[in-house]
């Protein structure tokens, strides 16, 4: 008889203990919930607002046109600010100039900094400019000036270049239009080329 008693007493206690346990678990539900931070819900841009107000700047500007000789020039920069000492000119960072030549061929010039002059329609890429031509030549020099009006591209200072013909050192470099309308990259002021034949 007592086996049945013990069983029913067990069930009797369980009927009380189990609901209490359920209540306890339910109540802790709200303690473990992760703390909601209403601030983080909307991410604010951490941009120095007063810097923007103080300087007028343009981000991702582009500037260019088609020259008389038919070259399509596009100059872009990461950000540009009006330069203090010259009117109509902007100083920019990471400039990139691309030239599509009418006779086929493509030239891309990049530089860490530069100045775009609206009056003379020229872009001076400085701080170590690098020119890559579709003919496989890569030229590095200090400064390269590209003009939208006549499509001239001129390096200031010595240049060094590498390409299919070998390694080239020269006093200056210029994109020149020959009579038959084709464009040639001309190295001048004493050119020295070293070519190592592959054995």
């Amino acid at each position: 008889m007592d086996a049945a008693d013990r069983y029913s007493r067990l069930v009797h206690w369980l009927k009380i203990a189990l609901p209490l346990a359920a209540l306890a678990i339910l109540s802790t539900l709200f303690f473990v919930a992760e703390t909601l931070n209403p601030e983080a819900a909307i991410p604010y841009a951490e941009v120095d607002v007063d810097r923007i107000l103080r300087e007028q700047g343009v981000t991702r500007p582009s500037f260019g046109g088609v020259t008389a000789g038919g070259i399509a020039i596009a100059v872009t920069a990461d950000s540009v600010r009006p330069s203090p000492d010259a009117p109509q000119t902007m100083d920019g960072t990471t400039l990139n100039a691309t030239l599509d030549l009418p006779s086929g061929g493509h030239i891309e010039i990049t530089s860490p900094s530069g100045r775009v002059d609206g009056t003379t329609q020229t872009a001076a890429l400085s701080g170590g400019a690098r020119l890559e031509s579709s003919t496989g030549y890569t030229v590095t020099t200090d400064r390269i000036t590209a003009s939208v009006i006549d499509g001239s591209v001129v390096s200031e200072g010595g240049v060094s270049a590498t390409g299919p013909a070998g390694h080239i050192e020269a006093g200056r470099m210029e994109l020149r239009r020959s009579e038959d309308g084709t464009y040639r990259l001309v190295f001048g002021d004493g050119v020295r080329l070293i070519y190592r034949p592959t054995p």
Partner: peptide, 17 residues
């Protein structure tokens, strides 16, 4: 003939086409 070839000149022009 595997020695490096050195070329010096007044001008070098590379036709872009």
């Amino acid at each position: 003939r595997t020695q490096p070839v050195e070329v010096t000149a007044d001008e070098l022009s590379i036709d872009q086409a």
